[in-house]
Amino acid sequence: MSKPITPWQTVGPFFGVLLRHDRVVPAALEAPGPRIGIRGVVRDGAGAPVPDAMLEFWQPDATGHWAHPDDPRKPADGFGGYSRGATDAEGCFSLDTIRPGETPGPDGTTQAAHLLVGLFARGLFTRLVTRIYLGDGPGLEADPVLRRVPAGRRATLIATSDGDGVYVHDLCLQGPMETVFFDV
């Protein structure tokens, strides 16, 4: 019998107190690989921007290797893979990073290029987990996680390329384009 985990509670509106003194190392930009930007807005069920959301991103390097002891393949020198930040007064977030590579999936499959996203906010008790796939990348059709998502909702997980290394991707907590969030 396992010990029950500590329950989640909301981050509330004042996590900026923590982020102001952040000591996370923004290492991804030091590593080799194409540089990309991801820009978007977090919206609530009324379509209003969410100006007090915290976002965390987790990604592999440009060759799909993770900076973690459980990935025996080593990542590129200087690569970390974790970033975090807050939305601004207009609900906008922005991430500058390197393009993540394709990475192994279950049972010998390959996962298309993606970043994991953790979304936290006042009004959310738990972290919402989603992914951002890069819309111009190969392998989306065969991606083992995307295949679990109802076809009509997959678009909410795929960022649109503007052709200049910048991707646009909004996160919608509710509404007709509600983002797919995962139970993982």
Binding site: T103, P104, G105, H114, V149, F182, D183
Partner: peptide, 8 residues
């Protein structure tokens, strides 16, 4: 949406 736990 329930998804498997991958290396990610």
């Amino acid at each position: 949406v329930v998804v498997p736990q991958t290396l990610s």
